[in-house]
Design a protein around this nucleic acid. Structure first.
Length: 244
DNA sequence: TAAGTTGTTCGGGG
DNA sequence: CCCCCGAACAACTT
């Protein structure tokens, strides 16, 4: 479920609850006391990467759906929810989610310029952040939420394919031109991801993730768990250049 | 049925 | 004190 663009869709679906008071709240998320939300009014909903931020007057609730998480709005869940929130006009259930209370101002907690879905996304800063890790493989950097907040394994694989860059390329060896090209593809693919996800046709449009054959060369993709993150990479050795 | 999965945090060892 | 690595966690599909 939860790569960044999916969280934007969730935010839109939660909008009817803005301005409403929580009339009941519970859930098994550890380290979080749902009772404290009861009677509080939801002021706003924001997102940072894969974080869904429910803004209340004196604090914010941060929800992260991790790898297997999901949510349901106005639909019952089979198992207990990590967090169940009920408003006068409906309810939402978050399953397998990490829930955390944030009391600091959000601008102190989050760097919006690192969020690939944000209008404040800053390519120049991203290049700086990448260059600060010259020995890191690009496949790991694409999953680093401090650099590409909101990116996950799909965005990693698809943007590397689009930019014709090998996942095991070492940042310090990648040409500036290629790095910039990659970032353009990350942002473009993220927009496509959102558009296709909304239309329910995302998987049809994927070129690399979980694919067998390179659509450019019609030869088999290499599949390997790459980098320190050891997540699945799908790449074409013919058209994705390796910098090492 | 067992394995695999769009992810992150924690703690131990070096 | 920092880095690295494995474990832990949760539910659903194939």
């Amino acid at each position: 479920m939860p790569e960044g663009p999916s969280i934007i869709i969730l935010k839109d679906k939660l909008k009817p609850f803005i301005g409403k008071r929580v009339i009941n709240a519970n859930g098994y998320a550890k380290g979080f006391d749902a009772d404290q939300l009861i009677g509080k009014t939801l002021k706003d909903i924001r997102t940072w990467g894969k974080h869904t931020l429910l803004v209340f007057p004196k604090f914010t609730v941060r929800i992260h759906m991790m790898l297997f998480g999901s949510y349901k709005i106005n639909e019952p869940v089979k198992k207990n929810a990590s967090l169940h929130l009920e408003f006068s006009n409906g309810y939402v259930n978050f399953s397998i989610s990490a829930v955390k209370l944030i009391v600091q101002p959000l601008d102190e907690v989050y760097d919006w310029s690192a969020d690939i879905m944000s209008k404040e996304w800053d390519t120049a800063k991203a290049i700086k952040r990448l260059k600060a890790k010259p020995k890191t493989m690009i496949c790991d950097a694409l999953l680093d939420q401090k650099i590409f907040s909101g990116s996950g394994n799909i965005i990693k694989n698809e943007s590397l394919f689009r930019a014709r860059l090998h996942p095991e390329s070492v940042i310090g060896e990648i040409s500036d031109k290629k790095l910039e090209e990659l970032i353009v593809e990350v942002i473009n693919f993220t927009k496509d991801f959102l558009k296709w996800r909304k239309a329910g046709i995302l998987t049809k449009h994927l070129n690399a993730y979980e694919k067998d054959i390179c659509p450019r060369n019609h030869i088999p993709f290499h599949r390997a768990d790459t980098g320190k993150t050891k997540r699945h990479s799908y790449y074409c050795e013919k058209c994705q250049e390796l910098f090492d």
